[in-house]
Design a binder for these strands. Structure first.
Lengths: 227, 227
DNA sequence: TAAATATTTAACCCATTCTTAATATTGATT
DNA sequence: AATCAATATTAAGAATGGGTTAAATATTTA
């Protein structure tokens, strides 16, 4: 996603702030939308579905806290990051702000450079959510290597390390036969020497936990995972 | 940011050191700038705005400590990491160095491999600084890194530093398993060696204070924070 | 400087995980 | 079908690795 496609809704009742901050954000290539109070914030939020909302707390008509609560109620904006724009020292606003569903806050005054890097950090958060990490999906099984978690259908299966690694290896290429020596190399590491039956025992455990039908033995060669 | 874009200012009065260390750093792809004394360090620092400065302590003209103090006064270099390069045993220099605003120190002699990994660790710190937004929200817990404050529900929880860092690391990616070695790297720093049970003890404290259910152990791997 | 607090170490325990070994079964080959 | 080598099964024991605690150090604070 390019900066041009990223929409930032900036809401503040001081025109100067809108001007300066808006200018800096535009300069970075973001698509900036501005509003002057809470009512506008809610209206513009609904209309534009911005990726990031920067909300001043103290505003006429409707303050930032209330606006934030209303914005959060809109399911279209559930992935939107909302951050408050608050004068240093207005501590109460932070607490109230988080209750209202804000993700962060930015203190005024702030240097343009710092603001930009803060905005980038917030948007990076959004990006991370989108990017899926090391996840293997096969049939109805999802293997999440980052979380060390297996989900089969609806149930979560907990596997000890060696079993997890073995399954992950076999499932990384369903259908492919992995030779016994390759399995030893990749799951046990080629410096460790274990007896010949160790793999079998682990396969057995997996068959018990994941399902017999998923693991095929190729006699004299190795094993494969089938869907 | 690619290595090519990372500028390292290396300052030492011994040409051999500049040669060897500089070679190793260049080899990793870093953009290396070298200087022979404190005066040059300050001049080159101002000019190039390096991301990392490696400063020998004992140098003619102006020593590393003084150079460090001067570099620190430059607001452009506020994000720059400064580390001293000191012969093993020159203990006083470490103390004085930190007073002068240094972030770390590297002892001579050092093997190229160790040096590189140290530099990487330092640069990782820089990256984290840039990236980490100061507030992490997970479940009903708000971690405010800027104020070193934890709020769980309505109550504020005070955590000592290591516990705080550990929690904030784990909570930075709920669900993700952090390997023990990664935790050591990122909370303790990879140069510090602590006993095997240290992490456990801190986890235990967190479990007491935050809630047992939030910290899951993945045996043989590490820990994860779950909501 | 003393007192308080934080951090690390060390010792021990316990549970889980891994491996082995002994025996049973399978399947390819003749 | 007999044979034989490879794999399956099982249970037991070994090894690993985490949990817990208290005491020893370090560090910070008053």
């Amino acid at each position: 996603m390019k900066n041009k496609d990223i929409k930032i809704l900036l809401v503040d009742d001081e025109p100067d702030i809108l001007e300066i901050v808006g200018y800096n954000l535009s300069n970075e290539g973001y698509h900036v939308i501005t509003g002057a109070n809470g009512v506008e914030a809610v209206k513009l939020g609904k209309k534009h579905k911005p990726h990031l909302v920067i909300l001043d707390v103290m505003m006429p008509e409707m303050d930032g806290i209330e606006a934030c609560e209303l914005l959060r109620k809109n399911p279209d904006l559930s992935d939107t990051i909302i951050t408050f724009f608050t004068a240093r020292g207005e501590d109460y606003s932070q607490v109230a702000g988080f209750d209202a569903g804000a993700d962060d806050y930015i203190t005024k005054p702030i240097k343009p450079k710092v603001l930009i890097s803060k905005v980038k950090a917030l948007l990076r958060r959004l990006k991370e959510k989108e990017e899926s990490s090391e996840i293997i999906k096969v049939g109805n099984i999802i293997i999440n290597r980052e979380e060390y978690k297996i989900v089969k259908g609806k149930e979560e299966i907990v596997l000890p390390r060696k079993e997890f690694e073995l399954l992950s290896l076999l499932a990384s290429k369903p259908g492919k036969v992995f030779k016994r020596e390759d399995i030893l190399d990749r799951v046990w590491g080629n410096e460790v020497v274990v007896g010949g039956r160790t793999i079998d025992v682990h396969i057995r455990k997996l068959r018990e936990k994941i399902g017999d039908e998923s693991f095929k033995t190729i006699k004299g060669v190795g094993y494969k995972f089938v869907i």
